[in-house]
């Protein structure tokens, strides 16, 4: 439903919105206060801890609102969607695994999946417990989230994005903040598909390297 609002409607406004996004990332706003959201999520899962959940709500609800607003969520449904995502956080906290993702990464995936549900689309997912799923023989390198524990990732990403050339950071922002596929980005920016793909590849390699370079 949110996708049906159309890309064309963005017109020239997206430049302003993206500048706002980049400004907020680059200014370092939102550097995580260091109460552990991961510990709070585990307390919600284990004890249905309302105080911990209140802390998560106070931290993530405004961020979700801001994040989802950029994703072309109609203003009238924004608060409902934030409530909906936070309700999923409460209900599904027992499936959160701190070894796999930070709290903000996990909540990002919850919000993404709720948006797909509400658009009446389905999301095929890997089932790690399925016997047909192939696992690494030895433990692989740790995920970026494990290395950049407790939300340091936002800081690392801020620095890494600051170093991306503008043509790459623009495409990364459209992918994450506008929910555009690479082919939609190509037509939005009037660029050949191959150009979009190669800029994305360059940007992702740099961001990935930055995340993994953290000790």
């Amino acid at each position: 439903m949110f996708d049906s609002t159309g890309i064309s409607e963005l017109g020239g406004r997206h430049d302003v919105a993206l500048q706002g996004l980049m400004a907020s990332i680059l200014s370092g706003e939102g550097n995580p206060a260091r109460a552990s959201h991961e510990a709070d999520l585990l307390a919600v899962a284990r004890d249905r801890d309302r105080v911990a959940f209140r802390r998560l709500f106070d931290h993530f609800a405004p961020r979700l609102r801001s994040f989802l607003r950029r994703l072309r969520t109609p203003e009238g449904t924004l608060d409902d969607l934030v409530q909906d995502v936070m309700a999923s956080v409460w209900r599904r906290a027992n499936s959160y695994d701190p070894a796999k993702a930070s709290a903000s990464t996990w909540i990002f995936t919850i919000a993404r999946n709720r948006r797909i549900d509400l658009a009446r689309r389905k999301r095929p997912e890997v089932d790690l417990d399925d016997p047909a799923t192939v696992h690494e023989e030895a433990d692989g390198e740790p995920l970026p989230d494990e290395q950049a524990s407790h939300g340091q990732l936002a800081v690392i990403l801020r620095d890494a994005i600051a170093q991306l050339p503008p043509d790459q950071s623009e495409i990364v922002a459209l992918a994450y903040q506008r929910d555009m596929s690479h082919s939609e980005i190509a037509s939005e920016l009037d660029l050949p598909l191959g150009t979009v793909k190669s800029r994305l590849r360059l940007a992702l390699v740099k961001l990935r390297t930055a995340m993994e370079g953290l000790d």
């Binding site: 990332i25 961020r63 979700l64 993702a101 692989g140 989230d145 990403l157």
Partner: peptide
């Protein structure tokens, strides 16, 4: 692994989304 890293970028984007002045 690659997709997990991309989701981590999304998580960091969410963490950085604080430009919304309107309170809950």
């Amino acid at each position: 692994h690659e997709v997990s890293a991309m989701e981590a970028i999304g998580g960091a984007m969410l963490e950085a989304s604080t430009d919304c002045s309107q309170a809950q």
